Simulated scan of single mutants.
Amino acid sequence: MEILMSIVIGIIFMTATYLMLSKSLLRVIVGTALLSHGVHLLLLTMGGLKRGAAPILDKGTSSYVDPLPQALILTAIVISFGVTSLLLVMAFRGYQELKTDDMDVMRGNDQNE
């Protein structure tokens, strides 16, 4: 199962990198969100994918799942939601001012002059 998840994580990272290298600001934002989801899956996979064991350590339990990766992922989801929201608001404000989402035009490197 870990090998399959590693392949999926690699595909997500590859797609996120492609989107982040795009000229469109909206694609860059979607790429950063996709990259954060890939990191969430990476943390979950590296924590170990175990079945049937509760993340509770009790006196009679012989096997349990480490709850630290789930806690880290939950915190990272909240932070990535906040960062994505901030980027979307900044992109909307930039679109209102410049009437474009092309990164070259926003930088002032317009080739049409």
Rank of each mutant, 00 (worst) to 15 (best):
L72S: 05
G47E: 07
P67R: 03
G60E: 14
S6F: 04
L34W: 05
L49S: 07
R93P: 01
I9E: 06
R27C: 00
G94L: 12
P67E: 04
V105R: 05
L57H: 09
G52T: 11
L98M: 03
M20L: 14
I56E: 05
R93V: 11
V89W: 15
L68W: 00
P69E: 05
G38F: 10
T61A: 06
L41D: 02
I7V: 13
G60L: 13
G31A: 08
L49W: 03
D110P: 03
D101K: 05
D66W: 02
L35S: 11
A71C: 11
S62C: 02
T84A: 06
M103Y: 12
L42I: 08
V8A: 07
A71T: 08
T15H: 01
L98I: 01
I77Y: 05
R51S: 15
K59N: 15
D104T: 08
L44M: 13
L25R: 03
V39P: 04
T84V: 13
D102F: 00
L49C: 02
L74S: 11
S85Q: 03
D110Q: 10
E97Q: 13
V89P: 02
V105D: 06
A54E: 14
T75N: 11
T100D: 01
H37L: 08
V39G: 12
M103E: 04
I29R: 09
T75K: 08
G48C: 07
L86Y: 14
V30Y: 13
G47I: 05
I29S: 09
H37N: 09
F81L: 15
S62K: 02
S63N: 00
K23I: 00
S36H: 12
G94H: 11
T15N: 09
Y64N: 06
A91V: 09
L34T: 06
D66M: 01
I79P: 10
S80G: 06
A16G: 04
G48D: 11
T15L: 11
G47Y: 10
L44R: 03
I29W: 10
F92I: 15
G47C: 04
G52C: 10
L35D: 03
L26P: 04
H40D: 09
V89Q: 15
Y18C: 12
Y18M: 12
L74N: 07
